[in-house]
Simulated assay, not measured.
Amino acid sequence: MGYSRYDAAARGRAAWNAGKTVGTKRPLTQKQIWAIRFFLDREGRVRDRALFDLAIDSKLRGCDLVKIKTGDLVTGPEIRTRAMVVQQKTGRPVQFELTSDVRASLLAWLERRGGSVDDHAFPSRVDHAHHMSTRQYARLVDEWVTAIGLRSSDYGTHSLRRTKAAMIYKATGNLRAIQILLGHTKIENTVRYLGVDIEDALLLAERTEI
Score class of each variant (00 low, 15 high):
97 E>T: 11
185 T>C: 04
104 A>W: 02
165 A>F: 03
70 T>M: 09
10 A>W: 06
90 T>V: 02
199 E>D: 14
80 R>Q: 13
178 I>G: 04
140 L>T: 00
183 G>K: 07
68 I>H: 01
111 E>P: 01
42 R>M: 10
86 V>Y: 11
92 R>K: 15
206 E>Q: 14
92 R>V: 03
83 A>C: 15
111 E>C: 07
9 A>I: 05
53 D>H: 07
171 A>V: 03
97 E>F: 05
100 S>I: 08
94 V>T: 13
42 R>Y: 08
149 G>L: 06
98 L>H: 03
96 F>G: 09
151 R>E: 12
35 A>F: 00
153 S>P: 03
51 L>K: 02
88 Q>F: 02
181 L>I: 05
64 D>T: 08
17 N>A: 15
132 M>A: 07
42 R>Q: 13
120 H>P: 01
121 A>S: 05
113 R>A: 10
140 L>C: 02
79 I>S: 04
112 R>K: 15
172 T>E: 10
141 V>G: 01
50 A>N: 06
124 S>R: 07
58 S>G: 15
210 I>A: 09
16 W>P: 14
114 G>N: 10
107 L>D: 14
130 H>A: 12
149 G>H: 06
162 R>F: 06
21 T>C: 00
142 D>H: 11
180 I>A: 14
155 Y>W: 10
43 E>D: 10
122 F>W: 10
19 G>I: 03
149 G>C: 09
77 P>M: 03
139 R>T: 03
95 Q>S: 13
64 D>A: 04
164 K>C: 01
162 R>I: 04
37 R>G: 09
136 Q>G: 03
176 R>S: 13
32 Q>N: 05
1 M>N: 12
3 Y>D: 12
16 W>G: 00
189 N>G: 10
179 Q>Y: 09
160 L>M: 08
157 T>F: 04
32 Q>W: 03
57 D>P: 03
33 I>H: 14
61 R>A: 12
34 W>K: 14
43 E>W: 01
56 I>H: 05
15 A>F: 09
142 D>L: 02
21 T>I: 09
142 D>R: 12
115 G>D: 07
16 W>N: 04
27 P>F: 10
132 M>V: 09
100 S>G: 07
103 R>G: 11
174 N>A: 13
116 S>H: 12
4 S>G: 00
171 A>D: 13
157 T>C: 15
205 A>G: 01
185 T>M: 11
113 R>G: 04
180 I>M: 14
75 T>R: 14
20 K>H: 10
108 A>T: 11
174 N>E: 13
135 R>Y: 10
54 L>E: 09
88 Q>G: 09
140 L>A: 08
159 S>L: 08
148 I>Q: 03
110 L>E: 05
95 Q>H: 10
62 G>D: 07
29 T>D: 11
5 R>F: 11
164 K>E: 05
89 K>D: 02
87 Q>Y: 08
96 F>H: 02
44 G>V: 03
44 G>P: 06
163 T>D: 03
14 A>K: 12
154 D>T: 05
75 T>A: 13
9 A>T: 11
47 R>N: 04
19 G>M: 00
74 V>T: 15
189 N>C: 06
165 A>L: 08
52 F>D: 06
14 A>I: 02
51 L>I: 02
195 G>Q: 08
81 T>Y: 06
89 K>G: 01
18 A>R: 13
205 A>Y: 15
75 T>P: 00
101 D>H: 05
85 V>D: 03
158 H>A: 07
85 V>F: 09
131 H>M: 00
